[in-house]
């Protein structure tokens, strides 16, 4: 009797669980579709002719004669290669500087004692809450005064020293037990060696996360380069793509091909680093 009842209960429970699972998967698939369909559409449109892009009846994902030419033509229609070069250069330099200087500063904030520590950290925190747009104009005037207008270096100065990076790395380092540093100090290591030999190797997840953030935001930045980079040979891929859209408004296939090209590097970086990603966010205190 009791056995039967528990069996029944178990059965209905498992039935509920099954329905629950199905609902969960259904929702997930719908969300995944919403997330990914625009990208598939982009891929599909990038090998279509202008007429085919908006052809709905019948709609095909891959046209009968794919226009692979679109991927060749975009390189000649605009100096895309130059734009890519500029962006790659900027992104790599900014990311490296950001990682290096933020983790350096964060180590000091997390593990060392010094005067005005709280005041200085407060300055960082306060600017996180300050939208860049609030001071972009004076910043621009100042940079121009320094002769940095229309120089890639301006973008580097602008993006390499973010408060966010320091904040994130500091949160992460605080999660690393102090004993580890103490022990190293007992062994006679100086602070620089401790940073290099102990802290850095431990901070892979946080560094990966910061890399993704910095890489993505530098690669995709639009307003910054728009203000600072004026000469065509210095423009970044986002500006170039936007310019291309302005000039060849009805060349949908080409625009989409250009867009696909601009996405590849960020997506690659993300895919490579993503296994550390959630861990990095969790351990760097970004969750609050």
């Amino acid at each position: 009797m009791t056995n039967e009842m528990t069996g029944k209960k178990y059965k209905s429970k498992s039935k509920n669980a099954l329905i629950g699972k199905i609902v969960v998967y259904l929702i997930l698939f719908i969300i995944a579709a919403i997330m990914i369909v625009p990208f598939l559409w982009m891929l599909s449109a990038s090998i279509k002719s202008n007429r085919e892009v908006f052809l709905m009846d019948p709609f095909v994902w891959i046209p009968e004669v794919p226009k692979w030419n679109n991927y060749i033509n975009i390189w000649t229609k605009i100096p895309l290669l130059k734009f890519v070069e500029n962006t790659v250069f900027l992104t790599i330099v900014v990311t490296c500087l950001q990682l290096l200087t933020s983790s350096f500063a964060a180590y000091s904030f997390a593990k060392l004692e010094f005067k005005n520590k709280n005041l200085m950290f407060l300055a960082y925190i306060a600017t996180i809450a300050m939208p860049w747009q609030v001071y972009m104009v004076p910043q621009f005037i100042m940079m121009r005064g320094m002769g940095l207008n229309d120089k890639l270096l301006a973008m580097i100065c602008l993006q390499a020293f973010s408060a966010f990076g320091v904040f994130m790395m500091k949160q992460f380092y605080e999660g690393i037990p102090n004993d580890l540093c103490e022990a190293a100090r007992i062994d006679g290591m100086n602070e620089y060696t401790i940073y290099a030999k102990i802290m850095l190797p431990l901070s892979k997840p946080a560094l990966s996360t910061l890399t993704i953030f910095t890489f993505v935001s530098t690669w995709n930045d639009y307003l910054g380069p728009l203000i600072y980079l004026k000469t065509e040979s210095k423009k970044t891929i986002q500006l170039g793509l936007r310019m291309f859209i302005g000039q060849y408004s009805s060349e949908y296939g080409l625009i989409m091909a250009g867009s696909v090209v601009s996405l590849i590097p960020v997506i690659l970086v993300f895919l490579v680093l993503q296994k550390y990603f959630v861990e990095g966010v969790a351990s760097s205190g970004l969750k609050g």
């Binding site: 625009p38 449109a45 993505v216 867009s259 996405l263 993300f270 993503q274």
Partner: peptide, 18 residues
Amino acid sequence: RTVAFFPYVASLVAITAV
């Protein structure tokens, strides 16, 4: 997870065009 994160990493110029 990866799919949900895609739009975030994608560049604005490209996806607004789409």
